[in-house]
Protein backbone atom coordinates (compact mmCIF):
# COMPACT_ATOMS: atom_id res chain seq x y z
CA UNK A 1 0.00 0.00 0.00
CA UNK A 2 2.74 2.31 1.06
CA UNK A 3 4.94 1.39 -1.85
CA UNK A 4 2.04 2.06 -4.21
CA UNK A 5 1.56 5.56 -2.88
CA UNK A 6 5.29 6.08 -3.19
CA UNK A 7 5.29 4.92 -6.81
CA UNK A 8 2.39 7.21 -7.69
CA UNK A 9 4.26 10.11 -6.16
CA UNK A 10 7.32 9.25 -8.22
CA UNK A 11 5.25 9.03 -11.36
CA UNK A 12 3.64 12.41 -10.80
CA UNK A 13 7.04 13.87 -10.23
CA UNK A 14 8.30 12.39 -13.47
CA UNK A 15 5.37 13.84 -15.41
CA UNK A 16 5.97 17.27 -13.94
CA UNK A 17 9.67 16.99 -14.68
CA UNK A 18 9.14 15.97 -18.29
CA UNK A 19 6.63 18.77 -18.73
CA UNK A 20 9.04 21.36 -17.31
CA UNK A 21 11.83 20.14 -19.53
CA UNK A 22 9.65 20.08 -22.60
CA UNK A 23 8.66 23.71 -22.00
CA UNK A 24 12.23 24.70 -21.24
CA UNK A 25 13.84 23.03 -24.22
CA UNK A 26 11.10 24.11 -26.61
CA UNK A 27 11.46 27.71 -25.46
CA UNK A 28 15.22 27.55 -25.85
CA UNK A 29 15.00 26.09 -29.33
CA UNK A 30 12.49 28.69 -30.48
CA UNK A 31 14.77 31.44 -29.16
CA UNK A 32 17.66 30.00 -31.14
CA UNK A 33 19.08 32.19 -33.92
CA UNK A 34 19.25 29.14 -36.13
CA UNK A 35 16.66 29.16 -38.90
CA UNK A 36 14.98 25.73 -38.94
CA UNK A 37 14.23 25.94 -42.66
CA UNK A 38 17.83 26.71 -43.48
CA UNK A 39 18.99 24.02 -41.14
CA UNK A 40 16.70 21.53 -42.84
CA UNK A 41 17.45 22.46 -46.40
CA UNK A 42 21.15 22.99 -45.74
CA UNK A 43 23.40 23.62 -48.71
CA UNK A 44 20.49 23.71 -51.15
CA UNK A 45 19.30 26.98 -49.61
CA UNK A 46 20.73 28.86 -52.56
CA UNK A 47 18.32 27.19 -54.94
CA UNK A 48 15.22 27.99 -52.94
CA UNK A 49 13.39 31.21 -53.48
CA UNK A 50 11.70 33.28 -50.76
CA UNK A 51 8.21 32.05 -51.81
CA UNK A 52 9.21 28.43 -51.58
CA UNK A 53 10.75 29.12 -48.25
CA UNK A 54 7.58 30.80 -47.06
CA UNK A 55 5.62 27.75 -48.13
CA UNK A 56 7.83 25.41 -46.08
CA UNK A 57 7.51 27.65 -43.07
CA UNK A 58 3.74 27.66 -43.48
CA UNK A 59 3.51 23.91 -43.84
CA UNK A 60 5.55 23.49 -40.64
CA UNK A 61 3.48 26.12 -38.92
CA UNK A 62 6.54 28.23 -38.21
CA UNK A 63 4.55 31.46 -38.52
CA UNK A 64 2.21 30.58 -35.67
CA UNK A 65 2.84 32.02 -32.22
CA UNK A 66 5.21 29.92 -30.05
CA UNK A 67 2.47 28.79 -27.67
CA UNK A 68 0.41 27.37 -30.51
CA UNK A 69 3.46 25.60 -31.89
CA UNK A 70 4.29 24.21 -28.47
CA UNK A 71 0.76 22.91 -27.97
CA UNK A 72 0.90 21.24 -31.36
CA UNK A 73 4.25 19.63 -30.52
CA UNK A 74 2.99 18.55 -27.11
CA UNK A 75 -0.19 16.99 -28.46
CA UNK A 76 1.69 14.94 -31.02
CA UNK A 77 4.15 14.06 -28.27
CA UNK A 78 1.25 12.64 -26.27
CA UNK A 79 0.42 10.41 -29.19
CA UNK A 80 4.00 9.17 -29.15
CA UNK A 81 4.93 11.14 -32.25
CA UNK A 82 8.22 12.93 -31.74
CA UNK A 83 8.41 14.18 -35.30
CA UNK A 84 10.81 13.19 -38.03
CA UNK A 85 14.56 13.32 -37.85
CA UNK A 86 15.91 15.23 -40.84
CA UNK A 87 19.39 13.74 -40.83
CA UNK A 88 18.33 10.11 -40.51
CA UNK A 89 15.10 10.56 -42.44
CA UNK A 90 13.23 8.40 -39.93
CA UNK A 91 10.74 9.02 -37.16
CA UNK A 92 12.61 10.35 -34.13
CA UNK A 93 11.20 7.62 -31.87
CA UNK A 94 12.60 4.99 -34.20
CA UNK A 95 16.03 6.62 -34.32
CA UNK A 96 16.13 6.86 -30.56
CA UNK A 97 15.01 3.27 -30.10
CA UNK A 98 17.62 1.83 -32.48
CA UNK A 99 20.42 3.99 -31.22
CA UNK A 100 19.53 3.47 -27.60
CA UNK A 101 19.77 -0.29 -27.89
CA UNK A 102 23.21 0.07 -29.43
CA UNK A 103 24.27 2.37 -26.60
CA UNK A 104 22.59 0.21 -23.99
CA UNK A 105 25.04 -2.65 -24.57
CA UNK A 106 27.92 -0.24 -24.25
CA UNK A 107 26.62 1.59 -21.21
CA UNK A 108 25.36 -1.58 -19.55
CA UNK A 109 28.73 -3.29 -19.86
CA UNK A 110 30.56 -0.25 -18.57
CA UNK A 111 28.03 0.22 -15.79
CA UNK A 112 28.37 -3.32 -14.48
CA UNK A 113 32.12 -3.44 -14.96
CA UNK A 114 32.84 -0.10 -13.30
CA UNK A 115 30.39 -0.90 -10.51
CA UNK A 116 31.91 -4.28 -9.67
CA UNK A 117 35.54 -3.22 -10.09
CA UNK A 118 35.05 0.09 -8.34
CA UNK A 119 33.32 -1.61 -5.45
CA UNK A 120 36.06 -4.23 -5.08
CA UNK A 121 38.82 -1.63 -5.28
CA UNK A 122 36.98 0.53 -2.76
CA UNK A 123 36.62 -2.39 -0.34
CA UNK A 124 40.29 -3.30 -0.74
CA UNK A 125 41.37 0.28 -0.27
CA UNK A 126 39.09 0.90 2.71
CA UNK A 127 40.00 -2.37 4.45
CA UNK A 128 43.70 -1.57 4.23
CA UNK A 129 43.34 2.20 4.70
CA UNK A 130 46.72 3.88 4.89
CA UNK A 131 48.65 0.98 3.35
CA UNK A 132 50.49 1.25 0.04
CA UNK A 133 47.64 -0.59 -1.71
CA UNK A 134 45.29 2.10 -0.48
CA UNK A 135 47.68 4.84 -1.56
CA UNK A 136 47.92 3.46 -5.07
CA UNK A 137 44.19 2.97 -5.44
CA UNK A 138 43.44 6.43 -4.13
CA UNK A 139 45.99 8.06 -6.39
CA UNK A 140 44.51 6.23 -9.35
CA UNK A 141 40.97 7.23 -8.42
CA UNK A 142 41.82 10.89 -7.85
CA UNK A 143 43.67 11.04 -11.13
CA UNK A 144 40.82 9.44 -13.04
CA UNK A 145 38.29 11.74 -11.44
CA UNK A 146 39.75 14.60 -13.50
CA UNK A 147 40.66 12.70 -16.65
CA UNK A 148 38.72 13.80 -19.75
CA UNK A 149 36.82 10.77 -21.04
CA UNK A 150 37.57 11.54 -24.68
CA UNK A 151 41.30 11.75 -24.00
CA UNK A 152 41.28 8.39 -22.26
CA UNK A 153 39.39 7.02 -25.25
CA UNK A 154 42.11 8.39 -27.53
CA UNK A 155 44.83 6.82 -25.39
CA UNK A 156 43.18 3.42 -25.50
CA UNK A 157 42.65 3.80 -29.21
CA UNK A 158 46.33 4.60 -29.78
CA UNK A 159 47.62 1.78 -27.62
CA UNK A 160 45.21 -1.06 -28.33
CA UNK A 161 43.90 -0.28 -31.79
CA UNK A 162 46.73 1.55 -33.57
CA UNK A 163 49.87 0.05 -32.06
CA UNK A 164 48.87 -3.34 -30.73
CA UNK A 165 46.05 -3.84 -33.25
CA UNK A 166 44.11 -5.89 -30.70
CA UNK A 167 40.90 -3.97 -31.20
CA UNK A 168 39.21 -2.32 -34.17
CA UNK A 169 39.68 1.43 -34.67
CA UNK A 170 36.02 2.27 -35.12
CA UNK A 171 32.36 1.46 -35.26
CA UNK A 172 30.14 -1.17 -33.72
CA UNK A 173 30.48 -3.72 -36.53
CA UNK A 174 33.15 -4.50 -39.13
CA UNK A 175 32.80 -2.23 -42.19
CA UNK A 176 31.27 -3.76 -45.28
CA UNK A 177 29.47 -6.54 -43.45
CA UNK A 178 25.70 -6.71 -43.53
CA UNK A 179 24.12 -6.20 -40.10
CA UNK A 180 22.53 -9.65 -40.11
CA UNK A 181 25.87 -11.32 -40.81
CA UNK A 182 27.70 -9.76 -37.88
CA UNK A 183 28.56 -12.35 -35.24
CA UNK A 184 28.28 -11.84 -31.53
CA UNK A 185 32.06 -12.13 -31.15
CA UNK A 186 32.54 -9.34 -33.67
CA UNK A 187 30.12 -7.11 -31.83
CA UNK A 188 31.93 -7.83 -28.59
CA UNK A 189 35.28 -7.10 -30.21
CA UNK A 190 34.04 -3.66 -31.25
CA UNK A 191 32.50 -3.03 -27.87
CA UNK A 192 35.65 -3.63 -25.83
CA UNK A 193 37.45 -0.30 -26.13
CA UNK A 194 34.51 2.08 -25.72
CA UNK A 195 33.20 0.02 -22.82
CA UNK A 196 36.65 -0.02 -21.25
CA UNK A 197 36.88 3.76 -21.54
CA UNK A 198 33.60 4.29 -19.76
CA UNK A 199 34.41 1.66 -17.12
CA UNK A 200 37.79 3.14 -16.26
CA UNK A 201 36.30 6.60 -15.92
CA UNK A 202 33.34 5.33 -13.91
CA UNK A 203 35.45 3.42 -11.40
CA UNK A 204 36.89 6.50 -9.66
CA UNK A 205 33.71 7.74 -8.07
CA UNK A 206 32.44 4.44 -6.75
CA UNK A 207 35.87 3.44 -5.45
CA UNK A 208 36.37 6.59 -3.41
CA UNK A 209 32.84 6.48 -2.09
CA UNK A 210 32.98 2.81 -1.12
CA UNK A 211 36.36 3.29 0.55
CA UNK A 212 35.05 6.18 2.65
CA UNK A 213 31.92 4.31 3.61
CA UNK A 214 33.83 1.18 4.61
CA UNK A 215 36.22 3.19 6.77
CA UNK A 216 33.27 4.81 8.53
CA UNK A 217 31.68 1.42 9.11
CA UNK A 218 34.90 -0.17 10.34
CA UNK A 219 34.95 2.52 13.03
CA UNK A 220 31.38 1.85 14.12
CA UNK A 221 30.17 0.37 17.38
CA UNK A 222 28.89 -2.81 15.84
CA UNK A 223 32.24 -3.56 14.27
CA UNK A 224 33.86 -3.07 17.67
CA UNK A 225 31.42 -5.56 19.17
CA UNK A 226 32.02 -8.00 16.33
CA UNK A 227 35.76 -7.76 16.97
CA UNK A 228 35.10 -8.43 20.64
CA UNK A 229 33.35 -11.62 19.54
CA UNK A 230 36.54 -12.71 17.81
CA UNK A 231 35.76 -11.73 14.23
CA UNK A 232 38.86 -11.09 12.09
CA UNK A 233 39.21 -8.46 9.37
CA UNK A 234 37.93 -10.74 6.63
CA UNK A 235 34.98 -11.80 8.77
CA UNK A 236 34.21 -8.18 9.63
CA UNK A 237 34.02 -7.23 6.00
CA UNK A 238 32.27 -10.39 4.86
CA UNK A 239 29.60 -10.49 7.54
CA UNK A 240 29.08 -6.82 8.33
CA UNK A 241 31.00 -4.57 5.94
CA UNK A 242 29.59 -5.69 2.59
CA UNK A 243 26.04 -5.80 3.93
CA UNK A 244 26.28 -2.19 5.02
CA UNK A 245 28.13 -0.65 2.08
CA UNK A 246 26.35 -2.47 -0.73
CA UNK A 247 23.19 -0.38 -0.70
CA UNK A 248 24.86 3.04 -0.77
CA UNK A 249 27.18 1.80 -3.50
CA UNK A 250 24.28 0.55 -5.62
CA UNK A 251 22.48 3.84 -5.15
CA UNK A 252 25.55 5.76 -6.19
CA UNK A 253 25.99 3.56 -9.24
CA UNK A 254 22.41 4.23 -10.31
CA UNK A 255 22.88 7.93 -9.72
CA UNK A 256 25.97 7.89 -11.92
CA UNK A 257 23.89 7.04 -14.99
CA UNK A 258 23.78 10.72 -15.89
CA UNK A 259 27.58 10.89 -15.97
CA UNK A 260 27.71 7.62 -17.83
CA UNK A 261 25.44 9.00 -20.50
CA UNK A 262 27.67 12.06 -20.86
CA UNK A 263 30.74 9.84 -21.10
CA UNK A 264 29.11 7.69 -23.76
CA UNK A 265 28.53 10.78 -25.91
CA UNK A 266 32.29 11.41 -25.94
CA UNK A 267 33.39 7.79 -26.20
CA UNK A 268 31.00 7.10 -29.07
CA UNK A 269 32.39 10.14 -30.84
CA UNK A 270 35.97 8.86 -30.59
CA UNK A 271 35.18 5.30 -31.64
CA UNK A 272 32.51 6.30 -34.17
CA UNK A 273 30.16 3.99 -32.30
CA UNK A 274 26.67 4.49 -33.74
CA UNK A 275 24.80 4.90 -30.48
CA UNK A 276 22.51 7.50 -28.97
CA UNK A 277 25.48 9.67 -27.92
CA UNK A 278 26.66 9.99 -31.48
CA UNK A 279 23.12 10.79 -32.60
CA UNK A 280 23.01 13.57 -29.98
CA UNK A 281 26.20 15.07 -31.38
CA UNK A 282 24.91 14.82 -34.95
CA UNK A 283 21.57 16.38 -33.99
CA UNK A 284 23.42 19.30 -32.39
CA UNK A 285 25.92 19.73 -35.19
CA UNK A 286 23.42 19.46 -37.99
CA UNK A 287 20.50 21.28 -36.34
CA UNK A 288 18.11 18.35 -36.24
CA UNK A 289 15.71 20.02 -33.81
CA UNK A 290 13.08 17.26 -33.44
CA UNK A 291 15.78 14.67 -32.78
CA UNK A 292 17.57 16.90 -30.30
CA UNK A 293 14.35 17.62 -28.39
CA UNK A 294 13.48 13.93 -28.45
CA UNK A 295 16.88 12.99 -27.04
CA UNK A 296 16.64 15.62 -24.30
CA UNK A 297 13.32 14.19 -23.15
CA UNK A 298 14.47 10.61 -23.52
CA UNK A 299 17.71 11.11 -21.62
CA UNK A 300 15.78 12.79 -18.81
CA UNK A 301 13.51 9.77 -18.64
CA UNK A 302 16.53 7.47 -18.67
CA UNK A 303 18.36 9.26 -15.87
CA UNK A 304 15.18 9.60 -13.84
CA UNK A 305 14.50 5.89 -14.18
CA UNK A 306 18.01 5.13 -12.92
CA UNK A 307 17.58 7.30 -9.84
CA UNK A 308 14.08 6.01 -9.20
CA UNK A 309 15.25 2.40 -9.40
CA UNK A 310 17.93 3.11 -6.81
CA UNK A 311 15.33 4.71 -4.57
CA UNK A 312 12.87 1.86 -4.97
CA UNK A 313 15.62 -0.68 -4.35
CA UNK A 314 16.39 1.09 -1.09
CA UNK A 315 12.76 0.85 -0.06
CA UNK A 316 12.61 -2.82 -0.93
CA UNK A 317 15.90 -3.88 0.66
CA UNK A 318 16.69 -1.72 3.66
CA UNK A 319 14.72 -3.23 6.56
CA UNK A 320 14.77 0.06 8.42
CA UNK A 321 12.70 1.64 5.67
CA UNK A 322 10.80 -1.49 4.67
CA UNK A 323 9.60 -2.44 8.14
CA UNK A 324 10.03 0.69 10.18
CA UNK A 325 7.73 3.03 8.33
CA UNK A 326 5.80 3.85 11.47
CA UNK A 327 8.78 4.75 13.62
Amino acid sequence: MNILRYLIKKLLRLILLLFTISVLSFTLVSLSPIDPVQAYVGAEMMRIGPEQRQRIAERWGLNDPPVVRYMRWLSSLMRGDLGTSAIYNQPVSQVIRQRFFTSLGLMGTAWVLSGVLGFLLGVLSGARAGSWVDQIIRFYAYLLASTPAFWLALLLLIVFAVFLKWAPVCCATPPGVLPEQVTFAQRLHHLVLPALTLSIIGIANITLHTRQKLITILNSDYILFARAQGENLFGLIWHHGLRNIALPAITLQFASISELFGGSVLAEQVFAYPGLGQATVQAGLRSDVPLLLGIVLFSTLFVFTGNALADILYHLIDPRIRLGVES
Binding site: S220, D221, Y222, L224, F225, A226, A228, G230, N244
Partner: peptide
Protein backbone atom coordinates in the same frame (compact mmCIF):
# COMPACT_ATOMS: atom_id res chain seq x y z
CA UNK B 1 38.08 -12.98 22.29
CA UNK B 2 34.55 -14.29 22.18
CA UNK B 3 35.66 -17.76 23.34
CA UNK B 4 36.97 -17.23 26.88
CA UNK B 5 36.40 -13.52 27.37
CA UNK B 6 33.20 -11.85 26.19
CA UNK B 7 31.88 -8.32 26.06
CA UNK B 8 28.41 -7.04 26.86
CA UNK B 9 28.24 -3.67 25.11
CA UNK B 10 26.30 -0.55 26.00
CA UNK B 11 23.45 -0.35 23.57
CA UNK B 12 21.64 -1.66 20.54
CA UNK B 13 23.93 0.43 18.34
CA UNK B 14 26.51 -2.31 18.85
CA UNK B 15 24.37 -4.63 16.74
CA UNK B 16 24.65 -4.65 12.96
CA UNK B 17 21.60 -2.63 11.86
CA UNK B 18 21.13 -4.68 8.68
CA UNK B 19 21.51 -8.18 10.11
CA UNK B 20 18.73 -10.22 11.67
CA UNK B 21 19.04 -10.64 15.42
CA UNK B 22 19.02 -14.44 15.26
CA UNK B 23 21.83 -14.44 12.71
CA UNK B 24 23.91 -12.18 14.92
CA UNK B 25 23.49 -14.41 17.95
CA UNK B 26 24.24 -17.41 15.76
CA UNK B 27 27.40 -15.75 14.49
Amino acid sequence: RGRRIALIPQSVSFLDPLMRVGAQVLR
